[in-house]
Design a protein around this nucleic acid. Sequence first.
DNA 1: GATCAACCCTGACGTAACGTCAGAGTCAAG
DNA 2: CTTGACTCTGACGTTACGTCAGGGTTGATC
Lengths: 253, 253
Amino acid sequence: MNQLYHVREFAQLAGVTVRALHHYDRLGLLKPSRTQAGYRLYYLRDLERLEQIVALKFLGIPLKQIRMMFHRGTNGMSESLRMQRRVLEEKRQLLDSAIRAIEEAEKATAPGNRPDSAILKKIIEVIEMQDNMDWSKKYYSEEAQARIEERKNLWSPENQERWTKEWTDLFRDVEAVLGEDPASAKAQALAARWKKLVEGFTGGDPQITAGLGKMYQDRPNWPANMQQRMQPFSNKKVWEFIQKALAAGKATN
Amino acid sequence: MNQLYHVREFAQLAGVTVRALHHYDRLGLLKPSRTQAGYRLYYLRDLERLEQIVALKFLGIPLKQIRMMFHRGTNGMSESLRMQRRVLEEKRQLLDSAIRAIEEAEKATAPGNRPDSAILKKIIEVIEMQDNMDWSKKYYSEEAQARIEERKNLWSPENQERWTKEWTDLFRDVEAVLGEDPASAKAQALAARWKKLVEGFTGGDPQITAGLGKMYQDRPNWPANMQQRMQPFSNKKVWEFIQKALAAGKATN
DNA sequence: GATCAACCCTGACGTAACGTCAGAGTCAAG
DNA sequence: CTTGACTCTGACGTTACGTCAGGGTTGATC
């Protein structure tokens, strides 16, 4: 009844390797008795313990922590599991976004069966997008996030390139007239171009506009790569000039 | 224009650590130029390469493989990504089942707020279940799998325990009458109990019954722990006796 | 009793992607 | 010339074992 098992037998019984049993032994997770010669001997009741180890390991809990859990008895087990579930859910988020990145890149490059170099570019683009979306979330209300999600279909690579060019041009043009009157016709034309570009992103939605404002106010806390990308548009005089021009425009209307 | 960066600067620019850059350098993934003194110097164009590395790493591709991909040029990139997507999807399967295991165990133990020891038992139960379902899938048709999924809500721990007991009792009873006539009333009564128990699982569905048959035929290929669990029911004489009894029952009907 | 195959043991190194010192050199400023 | 801020390399640590390597143990056979 109280059958004894050698490592090999016990390992097969439980579906693990001999080396794993050695490992658990050394870590103090499952210490079998020994023969005179030092051979490991497992009892059937050790199987229960081993199954627990395997199960917790399957949940992604590190062996050291499993040992601690056994050590402290079963108290706190459900708490540990709650925490582990959160850990796993976060991992799943990352996995999902990696998978989505590949999927979207495949979708975007498949139609033309473009050269392989294009897909890597697309991957980077998609990942950066996800990054930005994830980070900029905190500035927008739930509703604004949903609206942005809807408007995302406008963000084709072509459009993005066009917008970047238009913003760059506009900035250059504004910098050229910084000395002039913000209420002048020239300045008003520039302000109109600015407004149109902003609306190209917000779609006129006030919630999105509000979020965008919060994001702009918080620019000291932007991550480094974001600041880097925004550097061409960092000239504060330009922003102030446009502020005044927009105000002047409103005043005369 | 062709700005030079020291490690620290370059690392911050790209959002990685200095140590990571050292690492990529040693692995030959991104080898910067050096000053006389041996300091690493990065050009802006190195940033592109680094971004590619980070992106591929985000997708879970090991650095060595990334190096190979760069080495072979971009050819085969999309193929690698297809493969990687499959790898990631498999990982997600595992993650999902781990999360589901915790969720189900929490759900099952929450109502009574049972002692912590119960939840671990439940976890093991759920994982074993998933294991079995996953493995036994290959014996059943799509339709049968769906039917089984529906009938799963009957598999409460209580029911499972009851079924195990009934099967054990039935086996004992059959073994006691192995010498008698399979057509006898006693044998027919046992055959009826047998049939009822089988139908308790199949629900009378012919597709499930067919899958169950295939599974039984393939028992030499069952995994070790399954064979272990089925050992109490391995007496072939019992199976043969029931076969004959069921056949006899059909013949007389 | 010797031998042989089949097991078993421990110890050491390898894996992936860096983190974390430790000891030592470099650079610009005061 | 010192000081503080950087940088370098090398070595060890991390996780959960896999994979030898060198060396005992056991039970069966000759």
